[in-house]
């Protein structure tokens, strides 16, 4: 039988020069020097200490890490901080009003009990905010909503109340327009 050993080549290069990055995050300009391999999710969470963006898989499946990059929702675990140089990024921390009052999407989640542990929630909220900004009059049929939500995993709620929250979000956003 073959004897597996540690694969040294997979630690990569020996030096790790830092690269300057600057971007706008939640309306504020930030500048840092980072290792090219730092994931955008880690940059947001650890460098900027915006810990509302969560990490559930680091391979693009769960959606917990979703943020809005240059006006489009994307996985922050599937981007490096260096790729966001010059980008405009919005995280969950920017969604509520400065006084803390909830955005319609957040309000809808609360009304509909769309969260339990809350770990997946910021990812859902960011995906939905982005989607509804792009599609102010969305198809509200059950299947259509579920398809939009299908990029995010939730292990607690069974999705039913998240579907309801999506419907309610669309309604509240229409109302506030």
């Amino acid at each position: 039988m073959a004897r597996p050993t540690a694969r040294k080549e997979l630690i990569g290069q020996s030096s790790d020069p830092r690269v300057p990055v600057s971007m706008t995050v939640n309306g504020e300009r930030v500048e840092r020097e980072v290792s090219p391999r730092m994931l955008l999710s880690d940059f947001i969470r650890h460098e900027l200490r915006l810990t509302g963006t969560h990490v559930g898989c680091e391979h693009g499946v769960c959606g917990c890490c979703t943020v809005i990059i240059d006006g489009k929702a994307g996985r922050s675990c599937l981007a490096f901080a260096v790729q966001a140089d010059g980008a405009d990024i919005r995280t969950i921390e920017s969604v509520a009003a400065p006084d803390g009052s909830l955005h319609p999407v957040q309000q809808a989640f609360r009304e509909c009990h769309g969260l339990q542990c809350g770990y997946c929630t910021p990812g859902f909220v960011m995906s939905i905010v982005d989607y509804l900004e792009d599609n102010p009059d969305p198809d509200l049929s059950e299947d259509a909503i579920r398809e939009v939500l299908s990029g995010n995993l939730c292990r607690c709620t069974g999705y039913k109340n998240i579907v309801a929250a999506f419907r309610r979000s669309a309604e509240l956003m229409r109302g506030s327009r």
């Binding site: 694969r7 080549e9 997979l10 630690i11 990569g12 290069q13 090219p36 994931l39 680091e58 391979h59 693009g60 996985r75 675990c77 599937l78 981007a79 490096f80 260096v82 790729q83």
Partner: peptide, 26 residues
Amino acid sequence: PLAGGQSLIPTMNFRIAAPSALVDLR
């Protein structure tokens, strides 16, 4: 080359792929 990263970065996070350099096309 690095494009959208939606296939390449997961394999890098698993360390299945470890390119010496990424040439970002963005």
